[in-house]
Design a protein around this nucleic acid. Structure first.
Length: 494
RNA sequence: GGUAUCAUGGCCGAGUGGCUAGGCAGAAGUCUGCAAAACUUCUUACGGGGGUUCGAUUCCCUCUGAUACCUCCA
């Protein structure tokens, strides 16, 4: 079987995945900033790396998956006072900053659970790792890669670039171009160069979240938390570091620089062996953003309560929709696309249910091993979930063909076939049936109703039989008259 | 201006130097008291212009267009 290949953003190539210390795999993913509700843009990285996590575990790796919670607020780009983002919200709502962070952390967990996203192994908070961040900054200063100005600490990019490549990840290796491209902003006069970035920032008097440090009261810079926590829990160089494409620059570029500046390794270890970036979700071709007014939270998707939404979409529809595209492609949202995803998902899940009722034969008429290989080949090709789903539909086609007697399968092959389909659909892609479980009691009641209705149909009492069907439909139970008898199922949730 | 990514059939979206991904929608058919569902079949696309090649949607150049980022929003 072909080996797993991963697209490494650092080298811009697909590489064979070889963990640094097999069977262990360390994976760090940049988590949410908890000052607002999670939206579609949060679902994409969470689901992308959830599938990576699930598949690596499926392959037998012992994975430690770390996804942080950023609860140290960051400065508002356009805020007059340069107020801490979380602190600002706290003042508006008359809450403690940590209360706000806790509230949105809980909300984040709720929607992630609905999306069937597994909890990471460790979910560290930035505020819980201030000492680690301070020690890291001290080390960087010791190594001569940072300078202190007026209670703030900045990384000296020019100095750093004398020892290591800066800008490799984002293709910004020419510092002169970087210089000409950077914007002139207020309050940058402390820096030696505009592209130097803060490791520690002195707190202004109105800043609520602040900590004591060797350089006075302040708060950590915007990138140092991930580096500090990645090193703490996953070592000096982890296997995978993931996040959204929008984090490549400056966030991940800064992380690489900080980590090399702190550890001062030769050759550079760049914090992670494989850097993975998922692409963005767009709405009508545009990035989703609060300022653009096309910002839809996941909760709004689930409830349908947003002007851009024609109706509600279930968490699994969202998950399936995201997995239908490859994680490195942009994904454009629309009601039509989501409706199409919902129907496709329904077809997939209905087919899997049918598989359990198939009749077996003395022979199997198709190549089950080749089919299995195609599923693994798709996953091994940089987690191509879109290809996996296409192959799962090929599986559904086979199930229907068996049901119609056009293909045959042995009992043992059927067992293996069902197990394979379930493994990929539920364990690896993390989809799930959203309908409630059928209890034996409900099953018995349904059988009685179907029997009565069929009695009525036999007597050509269609008024009664249709009434039974319609009333059940009103209660989200659908009847289907097939040549094999009447089948029933729950209506898709809306 | 710089950096990066991308442009695929009515819609969404994979992929590939030659072998018509897949889903949704649409059409026809099978089944059926009706309905719904299901199944089968069909609709052969890769932004424009050059080039490399026996052959390019796939590689190279160029043009056009789109999106993101360019250090204090992650």
């Amino acid at each position: 079987m072909e080996k797993l290949h991963v697209y490494n953003s650092l080298t811009r190539r697909k590489e064979v995945f070889e963990p640094i210390s097999p069977p262990f795999v360390g994976m760090y993913v940049c988590g949410p900033t908890v000052y607002g509700d999670a939206h579609l843009g949060h679902a994409r990285p969470a689901i992308t790396f959830d599938v990576v996590y699930r598949y690596l575990r499926h392959l037998g790796y012992k994975v430690r998956y770390v996804r942080n919670i950023t609860d140290v607020g960051h400065l508002e780009n356009d805020a007059d006072e340069g107020e801490d983002k979380i602190a600002k919200k706290a003042k508006l709502e008359q809450l403690e900053p940590m209360e706000v962070a806790q509230y949105y952390t809980d909300r984040y967990h709720e929607v992630m659970q609905m999306l069937n996203v597994l909890r990471p192994s460790i979910e560290p908070r930035a505020t819980g790792h201030i000492p680690e961040q301070i020690r890291m900054i001290e080390k960087i200063i010791e190594n001569g890669f940072a300078y202190v100005v007026n209670g703030s600490v900045y990384l000296d990019v020019v100095k750093y670039a004398q020892y290591y490549k800066y800008g490799e990840l984002s293709g910004r290796e020419n510092l002169d171009e970087l210089l000409s491209g950077s914007r002139e902003l207020e309050g940058q006069t402390e820096k030696k160069n505009p592209f130097d970035f803060a490791l520690w920032k002195k707190a202004s008097p109105e800043h609520i979240m602040r900590w004591q440090s060797p350089w006075g009261e302040g708060f950590p810079g915007w990138h140092i938390e991930c580096s500090a926590m990645s090193i703490k829990y996953l070592g000096e160089c982890t296997d995978i570091h993931g996040g959204g494409m929008d984090l490549k620059f400056p966030h991940h570029e800064a992380e690489i620089a900080q980590t090399n500046a702190c550890l001062h390794p030769h050759p550079p270890r760049n914090e992670a062996k494989y850097w993975m970036h998922n692409n963005l979700v767009t709405i009508n071709g545009q990035k989703m953003g609060k300022s653009l007014g096309n910002f839809i939270t996941l909760e709004q998707f689930f409830s349908g309560n947003h002007p851009l939404l024609l109706r509600s979409y279930s968490p699994m529809t969202i998950r399936f929709f995201i997995l239908q595209s490859h994680y490195r492609s942009t994904l454009d949202f629309s009601n039509d696309a989501l409706t199409a995803a919902e129907k496709g998902l329904q077809r997939l899940l209905n087919g899997l249910r049918l598989a359990k009722e198939l009749k077996t034969s003395p022979i199997t008429t198709f190549d089950l091993n080749a089919y299995k290989a195609s599923l693994y080949a798709a996953m091994n090709d940089d987690f191509n979930s879109a290809m996996v789903i296409a192959q799962l539909f090929e599986g559904i086609r086979l199930i229907n063909a068996i049901d119609q007697g056009m293909e045959k399968i042995t009992a043992s092959d059927l067992e293996a076939f069902i197990s394979l389909l379930n493994t990929f659909t539920f364990d690896i892609l993390g989809l799930k049936q959203e309908i409630e479980d059928v209890t034996p009691r409900l099953e018995a009641v349904m059988n009685i109703l179907i029997e009565l209705r069929n009695e009525a149909r036999k007597n050509k009492n269609y008024a009664l039989s249709d009434a039974i069907r319609d009333k059940l439909a009103q209660n989200k139970i659908l009847l289907k008259d097939t040549p094999e008898g009447t089948r029933w199922q729950f209506a898709p949730t809306e």
